[in-house]
């Protein structure tokens, strides 16, 4: 990767022990995220896609250090976030921000917009009251709200406006990386495009990078430069967005992308319909975790040997499948 990367994830793994039985002895382990590695260049957007239980949200939470990994590392601009000093941690907290899915749950109902938006600066920087007000005003204007609105409480805003407040509070400290966890899926359809355009504008203005967790594939295609597809905690394919959409290689990626319903009626929509449900991550299938639902199983190897990631033409595009590309 030629441009220097903002984010480097290597071998990231998170196991959740599930207490089982009457005495709460740990018998099961959920491999929520299992040996995931990728990197993200400055100013770029990576989308994490996959279905429920694939580990994309757990992964995002580890990037934010809301969860501690079981093993592996997350590096922001070359610094491992697990071993940061206090001062570095403070830099990390201003450099990496997040926008969550539900704008009703992500703003405290007891705080005014001003306090919500200013929080990161209040905690990490020593600013005068005047300077703080100026920064809050700037952030509100950047997300399309008016500075006068800072004095209201969240319940006085609609869902789309609340998400704008959440975005204002995420960008106020001028972060380099913002984790967007399903940032538009709780919003009305006609509001989504406003918010997605806003993310793009902000990225162009300040050059921040995004990691977007999304299940809506249209959102992904619009927002992302690269897409990482996850299944049962494992990375199955990662590559440039256009390549992924136009010529997906992994059978799961193919099925997932074909499940996106296009807005057209003239050409028939042909989809790969997968058999069965997503298996429980408590007891994942042997070999390739996707084999019980896979439409392209090539033999016993799929059931017994876990595939490794291999390059598809360039180091930029890799997948984990036994099929030869």
């Amino acid at each position: 990767m030629s441009p220097p990367s903002i984010l480097n994830v290597s071998g990231l793994t998170k196991h959740f022990p599930i207490p089982h039985g009457l005495l709460g002895r740990q018998e099961h382990i959920v491999r929520a995220v299992d040996d995931v590695s990728f990197s993200l260049a400055h100013g770029q957007t990576l989308a994490l896609v996959g279905e429920s239980g694939c580990g994309k949200t757990t992964l995002a939470r580890m990037l934010l250090r809301l969860l501690e990994p079981t093993s592996g590392s997350v590096e922001i601009e070359g610094k491992d976030i697990a071993t940061m000093s206090k001062a570095e941690m403070r830099r990390f907290r201003t450099n990496v921000q997040a926008v969550f899915q539900d704008p009703w749950a992500s703003l405290s109902p007891r705080m005014r917009v001003f306090d919500i938006v200013a929080e990161t600066l209040v905690i990490n920087d020593n600013l005068t009251k005047g300077e703080l007000t100026r920064r809050v005003d700037e952030a509100l204007i950047a997300v399309g709200l008016r500075p006068e609105q800072a004095k209201y409480y969240p319940h006085e805003f609609s869902g789309g406006q609340r998400q704008r407040i959440a975005i204002a509070s995420a960008i106020i400290a001028k972060p380099k990386l913002i984790i967007l966890d399903e940032p538009v899926s709780a919003l009305d359809v006609s509001i989504r495009s406003q918010i997605m355009n806003l993310f793009k504008d902000l990225q162009q203005d300040v050059g921040c990078s995004y990691v977007v967790v999304a299940h809506d594939l249209g959102t992904t295609r619009f927002m992302a430069d690269r897409i990482a597809v996850m299944y049962l905690g494992k990375l199955v394919e990662i590559g440039p967005t256009d390549q992924m959409f136009d010529a997906p290689q992994h059978p799961y990626t193919q099925a997932l992308l074909s499940a996106a319903l296009p807005l057209r009626v003239d050409t028939p929509h042909e989809a790969i319909i997968l058999r069965g449900d997503v298996p429980s991550p408590v007891n994942p299938p042997t070999g390739c975790p996707f084999h019980p639902r896979c439409q392209s199983v090539i033999g016993d190897i799929c059931k017994t040997v876990p595939p490794r990631l291999k390059e598809l033409g360039s180091p930029d595009h890799v997948m984990s499948c036994h099929i030869d590309p």
């Binding site: 809301l66 992500s106 905690i123």
Partner: peptide
């Protein structure tokens, strides 16, 4: 477990601050 607490953590808020303000 609410997202606004997660956001406060992302902003770097200490446990005491989270308990007191959130």
């Amino acid at each position: 477990e609410r997202d606004f607490v997660a956001r406060a953590r992302v902003a770097g808020a200490s446990d005491i601050r989270i308990l007191r303000k959130y």
